Simulated scan of single mutants.
Amino acid sequence: MTRKHPNLRVKLLRQLRPWHRRIGIVSTLLVIFIAITGVLINHSNHLSLDTAHVKQAWLLDYYGIKAPTDVALYQNSPQTLLSTANQLWLNDKLALEASGPILAAVTHNEMIVAIDSHHLYLLSPQGELFETQSLATGLPSDIEAIGQTDQLWLKTATGLYLADSDLIEWTATQPYAAIDWIKPVESTKTAEFAQQIRASHLSWERVLLDLHSGRVFGSLGPWLMDLVALSLLIMAFTGCYIWLQQKPAKRKKKV
């Protein structure tokens, strides 16, 4: 007797089973990874991941986040008050993004006052912006510096201006005593502050979101996630096919 060759269905099943197992193993690992990151993202508020800053230098380097080099410290206690370019920082929190480079900042009458060349910003001790003054509200133009005695002074290209007690009206006048013009304070902790600002630009929630979506892998990331979805579809179709082909055979054995 001549031995019969396996039919097409049996050949196909033999080919599908090992590939089904291989794809299943890889897909399982990826699904576990996506599930874990998804659970962490879902509970990021409870785990404080949205406010936890990434301090690992290699990860910050990977995201292209560099430490600022233009840190100007104006106050070290009771709170840290400093600026980088047009940003004002209160401790490690970004309090203000000004319209131009910040020239100086100072605490005056329980208010934080910051200036750029054309604006004055009033903030609460917690860093909440209360008011922005400009030429339209009567603020002198071409501001160069801010200083204080018992009151607040502005130095401009056209002269000196004194603020009233409510910091609303500005009057051109000359001082009777020397004005303490606000300048950056020298500190050995400037580099440490720069690293804190660098870390504040990236939270662990952002990293988890990028891992979950695949964006952390760059332009190939979305394609990787598409590959995961495709592998799951292949798993589903091949699994259903194998099960349907084996189901009649199992019924025959039971009879």
Rank of each mutant, 00 (worst) to 15 (best):
G214F: 11
A229D: 11
V71R: 03
D142K: 12
D116G: 06
Q87C: 02
G138Y: 08
V185S: 03
Q195Y: 10
Y74K: 05
A67T: 09
T173K: 03
R215W: 11
V10Y: 09
I234T: 07
S27I: 11
L162T: 02
G100C: 01
K253H: 12
P175A: 07
E192S: 11
I112Y: 00
I179W: 00
T156V: 06
V39K: 04
Q174A: 08
S99F: 04
I182W: 00
S124C: 08
A35C: 13
S165N: 08
L103G: 02
P6N: 13
Y241E: 04
L73E: 06
E110K: 09
L49Q: 04
F193L: 15
R215I: 04
F193K: 03
W243Y: 13
A104Q: 03
D226T: 06
S231M: 15
T28Q: 09
K66L: 12
L129H: 01
G159M: 02
T132M: 07
Y161C: 05
L209E: 14
E97N: 12
E169Q: 12
G138P: 05
S165D: 12
L40Q: 04
A145T: 08
D116S: 10
L230G: 14
D226Y: 07
M1S: 13
A178M: 15
T69Y: 08
I234Y: 04
V185N: 05
T28R: 07
L73F: 09
L81Y: 02
K11F: 07
Q87T: 03
V255I: 13
T69H: 13
L96D: 01
N86G: 00
C240V: 13
T37I: 12
R3Y: 09
T28N: 06
L90Y: 05
L209M: 14
Q148P: 03
E97K: 10
T2N: 15
A157I: 08
A67M: 13
D226C: 06
H43Y: 15
S141P: 07
A249V: 10
D61G: 02
